[in-house]
Write a protein that binds this DNA or RNA. Structure first.
Lengths: 195, 195
DNA sequence: CCATTACTTGAACGCTCGTCCAAAAATCAC
DNA sequence: GTGATTTTTGGACGAGCGTTCAAGTAATGG
């Protein structure tokens, strides 16, 4: 009982994700969040605690959505190799072009906030590791079917791709035409070629 | 004539680099800079303009120092391949371990500030491109001597390594032990193997 | 229909931010 | 020594920050 909530918390988190993603943690004010979510600050404080707690909630939601999307992208196509290629191409597309300068919220947060906040650092670090863990079985499967290069350890290739994708999301924020991203993506795709 | 400056501008910029590097642009206040440089804010404003201008001056200095260091690292060892390997190993070491969470100021700036400031974006973007341009001749030379893999375009490998290194500096900020960095570095070194 | 409960509302708080500027201090030219 | 010139100094300013909270509002239980 009591007065019912006038907003959906997940919808608010989605708007908060957008805002933090586009603008960064420090550069977003609680009043900005008020404006973009349509929820007055008092209610935001009642629902989430404070700015940092709201950010962490948004970050966890983003990480979870991101993990779902990886599984989806890797399942694309007929073979495990298709999935890997699709994943890389989509990630490349996400950070190419003049209007794709948001990069990845996890990478942005790693750069801006992680060193100064152990809890946030743990969230981001675990997300990176989960991403690598999701790539490993796809790589192993593709190797088993001899669809990609077998010279490399699956774990090492997975780590390499995780680091590369985060690098693309950072470098992509500085280059509207993104020749570096494109070249680096082309190179990465050759890593998937069979022996 | 007139009262002489009581501080060296480059020394102030070096302290500012440290501060922005460790803490980020928005999270550093002019009073922090006052404390870390030992120069009162009025003098900072007189010498550099405002916080943003001081940041840009520091960023340009960092970029220039960084470019010098790349040339130095690539010149290490007996062969062009040694230089490339040394460059990657040092960059890996720079962002591995619990006390190396500053990453790279260019990457941090790309993530936090670049999307919202065209001038800063241009500085960072050009630095990335210059870095790639510095790698290309080393790669070509190593290929010509058949010291590394010749299957790949030098430009694409260079772009790949630039993006990878920026990725390492970002991912490294979240992992005190940095297994992802280590794996990805090991993988990158295999890319330098001869055919 | 009233007490209870939960959420909303927006004014207010103390603080810190980036920036400015008048006065004091240090140098040089003459 | 004196005036011109430049830098230093640190107090002050308005704006905006994250946060709090008392009052108002909408639902429920009896």
């Amino acid at each position: 009982m009591g007065r019912p909530k006038s907003f959906d918390e997940d919808a608010v988190l989605d708007r908060a994700i957008e805002q933090f993603w586009a603008t960064g943690y420090h550069a977003v004010s609680v009043r900005d969040l008020e404006a973009s979510t349509g929820v007055l600050k008092g209610s935001l404080y009642a629902a989430f605690g404070d700015k940092r707690a709201l950010f962490i909630a948004a970050l966890l939601r983003y990480a979870s959505q991101s993990a779902d999307q990886i599984r989806e992208l890797l399942a694309h196509g007929e073979t495990p190799r298709d999935g890997l290629e699709h994943y890389l191409r989509v990630r490349g597309r996400d950070c190419t072009g003049p209007h794709r300068t948001r990069g990845c919220l996890l990478a942005n947060t790693a750069a801006e906030v992680a060193p100064h906040d152990a809890e946030i650092r743990a969230v981001v670090g675990q997300s990176f590791e989960k991403l690598a863990d999701a790539l490993v079985p796809a790589i192993r499967a593709a190797q088993a079917q001899r669809l990609i290069n077998r010279r490399h350890e699956a774990k090492e290739l997975a780590a390499h791709l995780v680091v590369l994708v985060q690098g693309m999301s950072v470098v992509g924020k500085t280059e509207p035409d993104s020749s570096l991203i494109r070249s680096s993506l082309r190179f990465a795709l050759t890593l998937l070629n069979p022996d």
